[in-house]
């Protein structure tokens, strides 16, 4: 199979063609590994888990941003593959892009649970009760693995590199919808900004390419609704009812297991 890869070595860019023997069960990542092992060890790309859960291997495959380890050759239904680095990112080498800005955007929306009284998070006698129904209001957006693919598909990121992007906005909504969170007012000025949520015009490309079914476009539209409600009607976070604070159950008085007696048997 003919594989055409966009290369970059710090100075020049070029397309390079490889001929690879593939099995129908191979993923695009397997093909890249074959090239790196047998043909060209200078080819650079990221990988780690090889099972679609770390988000390292995002790249553009036949014109569509995707995870290489989750894209099977047989699914592509083409007799050649074109592989490029993610669109809208700066390229470091070959298929490796610079994710610094992306991670900083994620960080800027404060993706953690904020309580007005921070001690509640640490204080021992209290815990938060989240019902399964409440959990369902945000768990979808919690599936994000930070692969950055959605930003490569987003037409707004293409014209405004400072736009927070679907990933960060989706995560902002994930925490705003969380019944334990009280940080809406802390986040709203970051989100309701000229590079924030209103730059999204709902092209939906992020949801279309997201490999984890996160549907960030949906989260962003919900976020707009929440912000409008807050700004126009002064209603705060109607997304979910706040979680109940409950007393932590005392630790069970189970008898302690006997100390583990480990004897090493057998030679080295």
């Amino acid at each position: 199979m003919k594989v055409r890869i966009r290369r970059y070595d710090g100075q020049k860019e070029w397309w390079q063609d490889y001929e690879v023997d593939v099995k129908s069960s191979d993923t695009v990542l397997d093909v890249l590994n074959k090239i790196r092992e047998k043909q060209d060890h200078t080819l650079a790309f990221r990988l780690s888990c090889q099972m679609g859960s770390c988000g390292s291997c995002g790249m553009v495959i036949n014109g569509l941003p995707a995870l290489a380890c989750q894209t099977r050759i047989s699914e592509l239904k083409t007799d050649s593959i074109r592989i490029e680095p993610l669109y809208n990112y700066k390229v470091i080498k070959d298929l490796v892009v610079d994710l610094n800005e992306f991670v900083n955007k994620h960080r800027s929306v404060k993706p953690w649970i904020i309580r007005k009284n921070p001690e509640e998070l640490e204080e021992a006698p209290i815990e938060f009760k989240v019902t399964p129904e409440q959990n369902l209001t945000f768990v979808q957006f919690d599936y994000c693995i930070m692969c950055g693919i959605c930003l490569a598909a987003c037409p707004t990121v293409a014209i405004d590199p400072l736009f927070l992007g679907p990933q960060a906005l989706g995560q902002a909504y994930r925490y705003i919808a969380d019944p334990r969170d009280e940080g809406f007012e802390e986040r709203i000025d970051i989100l309701d900004d000229s590079h924030g949520v209103w730059r999204c015009h709902f092209a939906g490309a992020c949801s279309y390419v997201c490999p984890k079914g996160v549907d960030p476009a949906k989260a962003i539209q919900f976020l707009k609704k929440e912000i409008l409600k807050y700004r126009l009607l002064h209603k705060k976070k109607a997304a979910t009812k706040p979680a109940e604070l409950v007393e932590k159950a005392p630790p069970p008085n189970a008898p302690k297991p006997p100390p583990f007696d480990f004897k090493f048997e057998g030679g080295v």
């Binding site: 014109g63 569509l64 490029e84 669109y87 809208n88 990112y89 470091i92 293409a158 590199p161």
Partner: peptide, 22 residues
């Protein structure tokens, strides 16, 4: 590191080929 971003800009943003109806 390349300062230029890969395949970005106005024309890219208006080029929906391969993507969804939205």
């Amino acid at each position: 590191k390349k300062e230029k971003r890969y395949k970005t800009g106005l024309l890219r943003s208006l080029w929906p080929y391969n993507f969804n109806a939205e």
